[in-house]
């Protein structure tokens, strides 16, 4: 599959004097679907937030398409990235949040149109057509003029996905996107993600507690524990025959629920 679209190397992250991530090395290939599992507080969210440029690593490098995300060259020296540098790179990354973060003052079609309309000198009509198509794709074609407050949690999350997809990212990050939903709404959101995964060309990193789902769609699962990737492998191997004791414990706790 060629060179990685995302590469983490020796990534450390601390908040104050708490070391949250202690040396993360990770390659994501173009189109690869990776599920990130692990106990709460193990640093899953932090890993993907650094790629979305919402959090800066304490040390180490992240490459996106071979380009250094958090550092840039200036007069022959590596210096921390400025806004412009981050802006140029993060167009390849999209993110769906646990709590949707839709813009409440806009209709859902406006939510989807905003960024592409601002980003390029696109024709507004063309952007609108695309936005409507995207909302149809997530099953909300009849709701385009509603406001986020008028939707259920599952519908909001599908809008959030449509909005992120409008930017045509090469890597999409999902941070426990079903954990704020009522149980009966989880299925409709997972269904949309499953369809996206089948389309194939977009890489995905999914932080999730839905083990069956991970087993189903992921090419690879990473088990994060106490700031390191403790174990990784294809889902059939990792979930069925976990090697480390910690992963065994973690999975046992899940199966009990």
């Amino acid at each position: 599959m060629g060179k990685p679209i995302v590469n983490y190397s020796k990534i450390h992250k601390s908040f104050g004097d708490v070391d949250v991530l202690k040396g993360i090395n990770l390659d994501i290939k173009p189109g690869e679907k990776v599920a990130l599992i692990g106990p709460s507080g193990s640093g899953k969210t932090t890993i993907i937030r650094m790629l979305m440029t919402l959090e800066q690593p304490t040390s180490g490098t992240i490459l996106v398409n071979g380009e250094n995300l958090w550092q840039m060259e200036k007069k022959g020296q590596l210096v921390p990235s400025d806004d412009k540098h981050l802006h140029a790179i993060r167009g390849d990354i999209g993110m769906v949040f646990q709590h949707f973060n839709l813009f409440p003052h806009m209709t859902i079609v406006e939510n989807c149109m905003l960024a592409p309309a601002l980003a390029k000198k696109n024709d507004k009509k063309e952007v609108k057509i695309q936005a409507v198509e995207m909302l149809e794709k997530v099953g909300l074609g009849d709701k385009i003029n509603l406001y986020p407050a008028q939707l259920s949690g599952g519908q909001k999350q599908r809008v959030a996905m449509a909005r992120a997809l409008m930017m045509k990212p090469k890597v999409m990050l999902f941070d426990e996107v079903t954990s704020a939903l009522d149980p009966e709404l989880v299925g409709e959101v997972l269904e949309v993600i499953r369809d996206l995964a089948k389309e194939g060309e977009m890489a995905m990193i999914l932080v999730t507690h839905e083990m069956d789902f991970a087993l189903d769609i992921a090419d690879r699962i990473l088990f994060l524990n106490e700031g390191v990737i403790e174990e990784e492998g294809p889902p059939s191997e990792l979930l069925v025959n976990p090697k480390s004791e910690r992963l065994q414990d973690f999975l046992a706790r899940f199966n009990k629920r």
Binding site: M52, F97, F100, H105, L118, A119
Partner: peptide, 27 residues
């Protein structure tokens, strides 16, 4: 204004000016 609004604006690659004018101040 919820912190998530800033984060979503960053994730959509809006510029600082666009964040203020389109997302933050209108709310």
């Amino acid at each position: 204004v919820d912190k998530g609004q800033w984060e979503a604006s960053t994730a959509l690659n809006l510029s600082t000016k666009q964040k203020w004018l389109k997302i933050i101040l209108p709310q």
